[in-house]
Write a protein that binds this DNA or RNA. Structure first.
Lengths: 139, 139
DNA sequence: AGAAATTTGTCCGTATGTATC
DNA sequence: AGATACATACGGACAAATTTC
């Protein structure tokens, strides 16, 4: 599927998705974003497109990127954005269902960490993001 | 020589060559592959191209790579690592369970769009991200 | 213990060719 | 024609982990 850019161009859509992850706290302040190549796989986009998306966030002061290092979420949302969507973040441990067990290649019932953030705009729920990962083994 | 990608791209050709060396035992199980920079000279390719080739092998479970160390041929081709390319289950429509229905303040069973991203590093699943949102009203 | 060398990881900028809207 | 996007490829530089001296 080459290039259907209905409405918004891809790089802007990707930028918005990353923005949500940062503003919702899913990518906490100071944390490293996945590498450009990783994001390229994730979003099924070319690296150039990812770089364009990150450039948008950098322009907005949401991230900084260091040569040879990576791109960080900014420590503090400097500007007071009044329209900042409200957010809930909670982390909990769950048992993997068959679906997740398959993806992670673990046993059904094995523990997984799930981080859920809810993005609200006014009274309306805009998006719910759930991030599953394996528990840290190194404590 | 710029970038004529007629037929097979170079990184695939290189990947196939390396695969032969491993499967033939020329590079025995557990042995270190030559450094990326060495391979770059050998194949007269940029390091990035070599890294792409190695990524193919890593995806196929033929090698593992360690930062600062190098890339090893896998000790044991533990069974047939079934070809699992599905990295990104795109977007699908689901029916809201009670949990999501509550968060979104909609009825149980109402349609929701879920976008699932699977982040892999080599053969290992690092994270699964699921973003739920209400279907767009237009269309 | 410490410095240097090696090696992988990541980003930067650029370029070509193709394809779609 | 121009903007967007993809896949591929190059060369350079800095960062970080590991090994070697």
């Amino acid at each position: 599927m080459p290039t259907p850019h209905y409405g918004q161009p891809r790089y802007r859509v990707i930028a918005e998705e990353l923005r949500k992850r940062i503003e919702s706290g899913l990518i906490p302040p100071g944390a490293l974003l996945p590498a450009e190549s990783t994001l390229a796989v994730e979003f099924e986009a070319a690296r150039g497109t990812i770089r364009q998306a990150i450039a948008v966030l950098r322009d907005d002061g949401l991230v900084t990127t260091e040569h040879g290092r990576g791109t960080y979420a900014i420590t503090r949302p400097h500007g007071r954005h009044s329209n900042r969507p409200s957010q809930h973040i909670r982390e909990s441990e769950i048992a993997a269902d068959s679906d997740l067990a398959f993806i992670f290649n673990i046993e059904v019932g094995a523990p997984l960490i799930v981080q859920e953030s809810v993005i609200r705009d006014g009274g309306r729920t805009e998006e719910v993001i759930r991030a599953y990962r394996a528990p840290r083994s190194d404590q």
